[in-house]
Simulated scan of single mutants.
Amino acid sequence: MSQMLDKAKNFVAEKLTTIEKPEASIDNVDFKRVSSDSVEYLAKLSVKNPYGYALPVCEISYTLKSAGRVIGSGKMADPGSLKASDTTLMEVPVKVPHSVLVSLAKDIGADRDIDYELELGLTIDLPVIGKFTIPLSTKGEIKLPSISDIF
Results as ranks from 00 to 15, higher is better:
Ser85Val: 11
Asp149Ala: 04
Glu40Ala: 13
Leu120Arg: 07
Thr17Cys: 00
Lys32Ala: 03
Val29Tyr: 07
Thr123Lys: 05
Ala24Ile: 05
Glu117Thr: 15
Gly130Gln: 05
Glu59Phe: 11
Asn28Glu: 12
Gly130Cys: 07
Ser73Pro: 06
Thr88Val: 08
Lys139Gln: 05
Pro79Ser: 08
Asn28Pro: 01
Ser66Ile: 05
Asp149Trp: 01
Ser66Cys: 02
Asp78Glu: 10
Ser36Asn: 12
Gln3Met: 01
Lys9Gly: 03
Leu42Glu: 12
Tyr53Met: 03
Ile129Pro: 02
Ala43Leu: 00
Lys21Tyr: 10
Pro97Asn: 06
Lys75Trp: 13
Ile108Val: 15
Asp115Arg: 15
Pro145Leu: 12
Ile26Lys: 03
Ile142Ser: 13
Ser2Glu: 13
Glu91Pro: 01
Phe31Leu: 09
Val94Pro: 06
Asn49Val: 11
Val96Cys: 02
Cys58Phe: 07
Thr87Trp: 03
Tyr62Thr: 12
Val94Leu: 09
Tyr116Pro: 06
Val96Asp: 04
Ser146Lys: 05
Arg69Trp: 12
Ala67Phe: 03
Ile129Arg: 01
Phe132Trp: 11
Met4Val: 01
Lys143Thr: 01
Ile150Asn: 00
Ala8Gly: 02
Ala24Leu: 04
Leu16Trp: 08
Ile150His: 00
Asn10Val: 07
Ile142Arg: 14
Gly68Met: 07
Met1Trp: 05
Asp30Tyr: 04
Met4Gly: 00
Asp37Ser: 15
Met1Arg: 10
Pro93Arg: 06
Val12Ile: 11
Lys131His: 15
Ala43Lys: 00
Thr17Arg: 05
Asp113Phe: 14
Arg112Gly: 00
Lys21Val: 14
Lys44Met: 06
Tyr62Trp: 11
Ala110His: 03
Gly140Ile: 02
Ile108Leu: 15
Thr63Phe: 03
Ile134Pro: 09
Leu126Asp: 02
Ser103Thr: 02
Ser61His: 02
Leu64Arg: 15
Asp86Gln: 05
Ile147Trp: 00
Leu136Ser: 10
Tyr116Ala: 02
Asp107Glu: 12
Lys106Ile: 01
Phe151Cys: 00
Thr87Met: 08
Asp37Ile: 13
Lys32Gln: 05
Ala67His: 04
Met4Ile: 00
Ser85Leu: 10
Lys15Val: 04
Met76Ser: 05
